[in-house]
Amino acid sequence: MIPARAKELEPGKFKLMASGNIFASISSLEAKIDKRAKKLCGEENYTYLDKEIATPHSPAYSNGVDIGASYTVVTRTIQCNP
Rank of each mutant, 00 (worst) to 15 (best):
L40D: 03
A54P: 00
A6G: 08
K39G: 09
A54H: 02
K15L: 15
E30G: 04
E44F: 06
M17T: 15
P82N: 12
S27F: 03
G20N: 04
C80Y: 07
A60M: 12
T72C: 07
I2V: 11
K38D: 08
P11H: 11
L9W: 07
E52A: 06
L29G: 09
P59G: 11
A69L: 15
Y48S: 11
D50C: 03
T72W: 00
A6P: 02
V73D: 01
E44P: 00
A24P: 01
H57F: 10
E30S: 06
E43P: 00
E52R: 01
K15M: 14
M17S: 15
A18L: 00
M17R: 13
I33Q: 01
P82F: 14
R76H: 09
T75S: 14
C80V: 11
V74F: 02
T77W: 05
S70K: 09
I2M: 13
S28I: 06
N45S: 12
M1P: 01
E10N: 12
S58I: 08
I26N: 08
H57I: 05
L16C: 13
R36C: 00
N21D: 14
D34A: 07
K13S: 10
D50G: 08
R76F: 02
S70H: 15
F14H: 04
T77F: 11
T47W: 01
A54D: 10
S28H: 05
V73G: 00
D34Y: 07
V73E: 02
P56L: 13
D34Q: 08
S25C: 04
F14V: 04
A6T: 07
E8D: 11
R36Q: 02
E44V: 04
N21S: 12
F14R: 03
E44W: 09
R5P: 01
L16E: 06
L40A: 05
G12T: 06
V74G: 02
Y48A: 08
V74K: 02
A54K: 07
Y71N: 08
Y61H: 09
E44L: 03
A31T: 10
A69K: 13
I22M: 15
